[in-house]
């Protein structure tokens, strides 16, 4: 028996012949069309932004197409700082440290740690689904989502190391003054008040999802923005170890290394 249909013919699909963008406009000097004389970002002269804006505002502009209002700018900055350091124990920070102490090329430290931060354990891996679901669920009172939340059927509402995440609870309280006008953040805050005492709770991912959704970010932007926010903390830990000897990192002794039998052996 074999496939009778293996002749290959082009479908003749029309691919674009030019890159098209709403973000960047570049103008060249007369003597070289590959060089740049002026660059504009969503219509703003790059040098105008350099002179008059802060870093986070320009990130916001790049991703949303408009500079943030004063309130949006404050909230975006606060969220970025809330997530800036996943902490030295986070698997992504440990990966960063391993890359640093192992003398991996330093240009690879950030991609390595951000890749690990892209997982679903206390990272960015579930945020796209979380934003989608929060946008839908926040149209109804939080109480209606309580049972699903307690059964951990809502993404990024869960336990962390067996209990509700205490630090996520601290962060949501501290972000409340800046984010309380957001419909989805308010819904999440109410949900947290309904479930936290039952030892299930929000996570840093759910906080990020709610605030980004309120700021108008799309689900597919969520993971990358969360990675961007966490990058400085992850990088710092890797670089801290990049000048240290290999022996400065844990290498479990053989006594602490158990090789189990494979289930199918």
């Amino acid at each position: 028996m074999k496939s009778s249909f293996s002749d290959v013919k082009s479908r003749g699909e029309q691919f674009s012949v030019k890159i098209e963008t709403k973000i960047t406009l570049e103008q060249s000097p007369e003597h070289n069309p590959y060089l740049v004389e002026k660059q504009f970002i969503h219509g703003y002269d790059h040098l105008d932004l350099l002179e008059n804006c802060n870093f986070a505002d320009v990130i916001y502009l790049l991703l949303r197409g408009e500079l943030p209002s004063k309130e949006q700018s404050i909230l975006f900055n606060k969220l970025a700082i809330a997530l800036i350091n996943p902490g030295v124990r986070h698997p992504a920070a440990q990966a960063s440290i391993i890359a640093g102490v192992g003398k991996s090329d330093t240009v690879n430290i950030l991609p390595i740690s951000l890749g690990v931060y892209g997982g679903t354990f206390d990272g960015a891996g579930e945020i796209e689904a979380t934003i989608r679901l929060f946008r839908k669920y926040a149209k109804k009172p939080a109480i209606e989502a309580k049972e699903e939340a307690l059964q951990e059927k809502i993404p990024s509402i869960t336990q962390h190391y067996g209990d509700a995440d205490t630090y996520a609870n601290t962060l949501i309280e501290n972000l409340l003054p800046y984010a309380k006008d957001g419909k989805i953040f308010s819904w999440l805050y109410q949900l947290q008040s309904l479930i936290y005492n039952e030892n299930i709770g929000i996570t840093k991912t759910s906080i990020c999802a709610a605030i980004l959704a309120d700021l108008g970010f799309q689900p597919r932007q969520g993971a990358s923005v969360m990675q961007l926010f966490a990058a400085p903390g992850l990088l710092a830990h890797g670089l801290e170890y990049s000048n240290k000897p290999l022996t400065s990192m844990v290498f479990e002794p053989d006594e602490a290394y158990t090789i189990e039998k494979l289930k199918n052996e």
Binding site: E20, T21, K22, T24, Y34, G43
Partner: peptide, 19 residues
């Protein structure tokens, strides 16, 4: 795949200033 600035079609906002 080197691109000249003219190889890119800009479809965004008109030029504007921050202040």
């Amino acid at each position: 795949s080197p691109l000249k600035t003219s190889d890119v079609t800009y479809t965004g906002k008109a030029l504007r200033t921050v202040k």
